[in-house]
Write a protein that binds this DNA or RNA. Structure first.
Lengths: 191, 191
DNA sequence: GTCATTAGGTCAGCCATGTTGACATATTTT
DNA sequence: AAAATATGTCAACATGGCTGACCTAATGAC
């Protein structure tokens, strides 16, 4: 623990020095504001859906599953596991409930009959859109307040925050969903 | 559940119509990209601290407590509860561990002796700074990639995402911490 | 055609962190 | 003296992560 304090001492000294010292991470440049803003923003960002979900006996875990299945109709269980980065046992619990209650259904893969491709039902799509609508309303209000460049700036900042190794994969997922979701939802809404 | 589908139908129709219909929330304007970017960005944003904390037997809950106490030396338990928006029982569990393991300590309030004012110890400050440094490194990389306006744009976007009722309070907390943290950490590091 | 691999499911139990409700103690306020 | 406040604590429960073990069905390699 003592070695950790060394950093602090270095940082204090660098404050009084006229020229910047080669500090590991100057305390005065810690982005406390953005760290805390991310915490508060995310907390409130998920709070609107939470209320709706609670009435249905669902939680955030259900929301994530429903959201990504809605956005990627026909996705494989393995893909969903990869996106959510949870274990199949954790996924299994919430997925089973969503299936039992009629929000998601599975179809055998055409090529590979081991696969269980995931689709939202009509009710599932409705709920997913309702929840996305709540979050969109919050986002849209902010973007309207901030002007035309805010959206792209937010996109770039958030995309940059993603782990470099995952970033391309995630961005591809997001844009692939963009093109898929509208066309396929109409066809596959109740497959 | 049927009434939920009404929205969908309206939205589908608005797609094929030449003129925009008065939709509740057009599906084509749902901010799916930002919704998902926030999910992935936040997930990775907390992942670096998580690894460090896990080695110490702590979790995210400990991180939040340590962070805000470090940033607001001498804050009251009630204030911390208000910021974190959890119950005192939940807080009590993690706070007790942080105190027992020497990262946080309490002092009786000078005016009101019922109060237990919270301070980080030297070890607590070191850990808090270390964790903030990890998150700062991620943020700094992004800001450097995006140019000089990115920081203010991110601040505005994230601040706007906070519930309107809380926003002023939170922003005051963040700026109050800015002015407090540096001066008081030196004085109160080991009170 | 057999066998290893893959996709997925399931059971059992543990852990972290949130919740409610009830109650205790010390201190301050009225 | 009584009421209100700040904090702590016990007990019980829910959610949603985790590991480990084991199962079926289907595919792919040889």
């Amino acid at each position: 623990m003592a070695d950790l304090m060394t950093n602090i001492s270095i940082m204090r000294k660098s404050r009084s020095a006229a020229v910047p010292v080669e500090t590991v991470l100057p305390a005065d440049e810690l982005h406390f504001d953005l760290i805390e803003l991310l915490f508060f923003a995310y907390r409130d960002f998920v709070s609107d859906p939470d209320e709706v979900l609670a009435k249905l006996g669902f939680g955030r875990a259900h929301h994530r599953v429903l959201h990504f299945v809605n956005r990627n109709p026909g996705m494989k269980v393995a893909e969903l596991l990869d996106v959510l980065k949870i274990t199949k046992q954790s996924l299994g619990r919430v997925l089973k409930q969503l299936i039992d209650e009629g929000y998601i259904l599975q179809k055998e893969g055409a090529n590979d009959r081991r696969q269980r491709l995931l689709y939202v039902t009509a009710a599932g799509a409705a709920l997913a859109v309702k929840l996305a609508g709540l979050q969109t309303a919050r986002i849209a209000r902010v973007l309207a307040e901030l002007g035309p460049d805010a959206r792209e700036a937010a996109r770039r900042f958030l995309a940059g925050m993603i782990d470099a190794e995952d970033r391309e994969h995630v961005l591809r997922l997001i844009s692939r969903s963009d093109s898929l979701a509208n066309g396929s939802r109409a066809r596959n809404g109740a497959p």
